[in-house]
Design a protein around this nucleic acid. Structure first.
Lengths: 231, 231
DNA sequence: TTGATATCTTACCCACCAGTAAGAAAAAAG
DNA sequence: CTTTTTTCTTACTGGTGGGTAAGATATCAA
């Protein structure tokens, strides 16, 4: 009977009956928690908030999670699993280093538009206990190492220009991680469009490629108007 | 007499005497607050924490700031001012669109390694009241518009390849904003090195430029080893 | 020196919220 | 139907922390 029951992605139906189904109820808690954590941050989200959206009371949550942090950790784990699944598919693919980086951009950009994926990079690590933090950091480090190895591979097979893999990985990961800060599910941009543009910008760069034997300098100077292109 | 007085950047000396100097005391509060907000987040930093580092007590802070949020807003304002100063210098520079974007990358990367600059992009906007949030959003929007205009300018003068300025700006700003998440003042990377590598990656892209008339495909296939380059 | 003002402290209030105790109510088992 | 187990609720505790009241002490101006 609550008037604000029309929540974005309402998972309260899982708790509509008392039928025993711990798995789906656990997931419902994580989904609504992730949603609230992204809306208001972990700290500003009270367990009462989470419970209210699920049409239950706070202590009921303690039947499915040890404490508040356990819920947070659940969101992190779900998200890192999503990222890792994508990563494994890429490693199986046998293209050049550059092809792997491109595939990484597509996969990762998509995950950053999903609630659990966004949680991994958007939520504040400082809210985790030291053990949980160590676990999450391990995941993140693994992702970073993989990206660097793709870049290194590309440098070695000649598909990527020589560069510092560490800083280059930071640049790519930064651009992608930041998606979870501005992306809105109801917005005009689809994950696919974002991934495509990012892949293009990051692989080819901003610079207009020099045509034929013409010097770049000349092209840059020539103020050719009317070149607008969108999307 | 406190044993932990050796804080990173100790500004408590401003409060050592009761001499009337509100300006420098206000700054001291902002500096230590920014430091703590970055260390532990705004929410986890109590006013007692801030006061303790300054060797004063909590109510003393209320002589220089209306409330906790006022301190936070002070950090935001200081940071956005830093960004804007850089931006103004670039607009005065009369290079091509690409040159302006490159200058933006250098300037912005540097600001992201300074505490107040980091605050702007790292701290949680959700901790701001609606009015303060509107102000901060206005600043951020302005920065975004400027970057987009540089890109648009570059497309029109032919220095930048045709692209969607909005998404391209997101990619560049994302890579740069993320710096404030991993940068450590005591770390091995200088702001200059970061800016240089980022400028290179973002303008030229990852892809190894095709040499002469040789087709790209051939170069990508050729697995040329031993191309490692660091720094 | 004296009064006025700015500066800072001790002591306190109260709202918020994670977590718990104890038990009611529903579901499953026998 | 009876018993056992799971599920969930009402009512509470205790710690934290922003903000305030009231007053002490130093600085400054005259």
């Amino acid at each position: 009977m609550p008037k604000n029951a029309i929540a974005p992605q309402s998972h309260w139906e899982a708790f509509a009956s008392r039928r025993r189904d711990p798995a789906s109820k656990r997931e419902a808690v994580l989904q609504t928690a992730a949603c609230l954590f992204l809306e208001k941050s972990y700290r500003r989200t009270s367990l009462d908030d989470v419970a209210r959206r699920l049409n239950i009371t706070k202590p009921a949550l303690y039947h499915y999670f040890r404490n508040k942090e356990d819920i947070l950790l659940g969101c992190y784990r779900w998200g890192t699993t999503l990222i890792e699944e994508g990563l494994n598919r890429i490693a199986a693919d046998c293209g050049s280093g550059l092809a792997k980086v491109e595939a990484f951009i597509y996969s990762y950009a998509n995950v950053m538009t999903v609630n659990f994926g966004r949680c991994v990079m958007r939520l504040d690590e400082g809210d985790l206990s030291s053990e949980a933090l160590a676990e999450v950091r391990r995941y993140k480090r693994k992702i970073d190492r993989r990206l660097r190895s793709f870049i290194q591979e590309g440098i070695e097979d000649g598909s990527i220009a020589p560069c510092d893999p560490k800083l280059t990985a930071f640049a790519i990961a930064g651009a992608l991680n930041w998606i979870c800060m501005w992306y809105e599910p109801e917005g005009p941009l689809t994950p696919g469009e974002i991934a495509a543009q990012f892949a293009r910008t990051l692989t080819r760069g901003l610079m207009r490629p020099a045509r034929r034997a013409a010097s770049r300098r000349v092209l840059a100077m020539r103020a050719a108007g009317g070149n607008n292109i969108s999307s």
